[in-house]
């Protein structure tokens, strides 16, 4: 039985108006991602990878085409509904972690639950601790981000991304700022999560062989130029 399609990108283009004229970042990109797949998006700097992720997460709007996730046309939602939907459906991990520096690690995870309100209030602390255990930094729950290493901060960011148990995890070069050992550890976390049913899309420059990716999409100058499936 074919896997259920969770993400459907159809003919998505993105143009920016610059003083020198319109600049097209994405050219009519179309693909589908089934539930539970671990997908890598690769390409050189400026190829449109991050823009494509922004389209997927509803952070940015396409100039043309549609993004349908779990039956919802993402860009038909208004800003407020989009934020709530994103909070519940998608967890985002950034290259520079983007943790709130004034909250400790536990509070960073709790804040995401607090905004979206899908996890019952009584269960939030327990779930936050569980997630921090899952990514291996439970001992650092009370520490502030500045007291953690890059790898630990990225693990905290992953825990936060998982706070509302979203079916999709999007990561924009999550290991771009980490050493090779930590990179392997993070890749391993993603692989584990995919095995547990999460759909994960990762923009990366890293070597993705042997770390559990099922599919690789290659972008070049805003065009989808290659697609590779791994066994």
């Amino acid at each position: 039985m074919p896997a259920e399609i969770l993400i459907d990108i159809d003919y998505v283009s993105k143009q920016y108006a610059l003083a020198s004229g319109a600049f097209t970042v994405l050219h009519h990109i179309s693909f589908q991602i089934p539930k539970g797949q671990l997908v890598a998006i690769v390409g050189k700097s400026g190829s449109g990878k991050s823009t494509l992720l922004n389209m997927l997460s509803g952070i940015d709007h396409p100039s043309e085409g549609t993004v349908v996730i779990d039956g919802t046309n993402v860009h038909s939602l208004n800003e407020s509904r989009l934020a709530s939907w994103r909070g519940a459906m998608i967890g985002i991990v950034f290259q520079f972690f983007q943790l709130i520096p004034t909250l400790n690690i536990l509070e960073n995870v709790l804040l995401a639950m607090d905004f979206v309100n899908v996890v019952a209030k009584n269960n939030r602390h327990e779930r936050a601790h569980h997630l921090l255990e899952l990514v291996g930094i439970a001992d650092h729950a009370d520490k502030f981000p500045s007291a953690l290493s890059g790898g630990e901060q990225q693990r905290a960011a992953i825990a936060r991304a998982l706070a509302n148990d979203p079916p999709i995890l999007i990561a924009d070069e999550p290991t771009g700022n980490l050493d090779s050992q930590t990179t392997d550890d993070i890749q391993h976390v993603f692989s584990e999560l995919a095995n547990n049913g999460k759909t994960i899309i990762v923009v990366t420059h890293d070597d993705i062989t042997d770390v559990g990716y099922e599919r690789m999409l290659t972008l070049k100058d805003g065009h989808l130029v290659g697609e590779k499936l791994f066994a």
Binding site: S57, S84, I92, F115, V116
Partner: peptide, 16 residues
């Protein structure tokens, strides 16, 4: 401003 973007990314609505 960037923190504001992060809050919205993790699910905060404008009203929140």
């Amino acid at each position: 401003t960037r923190q504001l973007g992060v809050l919205k990314t993790v699910g905060a609505t404008r009203y929140q």
